[in-house]
Each structure stands twice: as structure tokens, then as C-alpha cells.
Simulated scan of single mutants.
Amino acid sequence: MPSRLKPEDQQRVDEYLRAPQHQVERQPFRPWLLLLVVLVVVIGLGLLSRLLSRLVL
């Protein structure tokens, strides 16, 4: 897709993105790990709510 910016503006954007602080290496996204974390949190909060309800009643 061609850029809609003027060439000098596109050059400034490219320079900005090439700066060292914008070149952070990221680990690959792992959806199964995210799903596992969400499940553990939901189950943990469910168990905590059951425990609290038994203590209150």
C-alpha cells in the first residue's frame, strides 16, 4: 500500500521508527499461555468466592 504522506514526512517517520528505542525485540505471542493464565485466574477467583461465601454464611 503506498504511503499517503509526503516523501519528507515519510522519511521522518522512517527515521523515527529506526531509532534504537523503537527496535525492541518481542517474544512471539502465545495464545495458549494467555488462555491458561485466564483460566487459572477465573478458577482461582471462583474458588475464592466459594470460600468466602461459606465463611459468611
Rank of each mutant, 00 (worst) to 15 (best):
residue 1 M to V: 07
residue 1 M to Q: 11
residue 1 M to F: 05
residue 2 P to V: 13
residue 2 P to S: 12
residue 2 P to C: 01
residue 2 P to H: 01
residue 3 S to N: 08
residue 3 S to F: 00
residue 4 R to Q: 04
residue 4 R to T: 10
residue 4 R to E: 01
residue 4 R to S: 10
residue 5 L to S: 02
residue 5 L to C: 11
residue 6 K to P: 05
residue 6 K to M: 00
residue 7 P to M: 03
residue 8 E to T: 10
residue 8 E to K: 06
residue 9 D to C: 03
residue 9 D to M: 02
residue 9 D to G: 03
residue 10 Q to K: 12
residue 10 Q to T: 08
residue 10 Q to G: 06
residue 11 Q to F: 08
residue 12 R to P: 08
residue 13 V to C: 04
residue 13 V to I: 09
residue 13 V to Y: 07
residue 14 D to N: 15
residue 14 D to G: 03
residue 15 E to K: 06
residue 16 Y to P: 02
residue 16 Y to H: 07
residue 17 L to C: 14
residue 17 L to M: 12
residue 17 L to A: 06
residue 17 L to G: 00
residue 17 L to P: 01
residue 17 L to S: 10
residue 18 R to E: 13
residue 19 A to D: 04
residue 20 P to A: 13
residue 20 P to C: 07
residue 20 P to H: 09
residue 20 P to V: 05
residue 21 Q to C: 08
residue 22 H to N: 15
residue 22 H to Y: 05
residue 22 H to F: 04
residue 22 H to T: 09
residue 23 Q to F: 01
residue 23 Q to M: 12
residue 23 Q to A: 06
residue 23 Q to R: 13
residue 23 Q to H: 04
residue 24 V to A: 05
residue 24 V to H: 03
residue 25 E to G: 13
residue 25 E to K: 11
residue 25 E to N: 02
residue 28 P to F: 05
residue 28 P to L: 11
residue 28 P to R: 03
residue 29 F to H: 09
residue 29 F to W: 10
residue 29 F to T: 12
residue 30 R to S: 11
residue 30 R to D: 14
residue 30 R to V: 15
residue 30 R to K: 13
residue 31 P to N: 01
residue 31 P to V: 00
residue 32 W to M: 04
residue 32 W to V: 13
residue 33 L to Y: 05
residue 33 L to C: 08
residue 33 L to E: 13
residue 34 L to H: 13
residue 34 L to N: 14
residue 34 L to M: 12
residue 35 L to M: 02
residue 35 L to P: 01
residue 35 L to G: 05
residue 35 L to E: 04
residue 36 L to V: 14
residue 36 L to T: 15
residue 36 L to S: 09
residue 37 V to R: 06
residue 37 V to P: 00
residue 39 L to T: 13
residue 39 L to Y: 09
residue 40 V to E: 01
residue 41 V to A: 12
residue 42 V to I: 14
residue 43 I to Y: 04
residue 43 I to N: 02
residue 44 G to P: 00
residue 44 G to L: 04
residue 46 G to Q: 00
residue 46 G to R: 05
residue 46 G to E: 05
residue 46 G to W: 00
residue 46 G to L: 08
residue 47 L to I: 10
residue 48 L to E: 10
residue 49 S to Y: 03
residue 49 S to A: 15
residue 51 L to T: 15
residue 52 L to N: 06
residue 52 L to S: 04
residue 52 L to W: 00
residue 53 S to A: 15
residue 54 R to S: 12
residue 56 V to S: 10
residue 56 V to P: 01
residue 56 V to A: 10
residue 56 V to K: 04
residue 56 V to L: 03
residue 57 L to I: 08
residue 57 L to C: 10
residue 57 L to R: 07
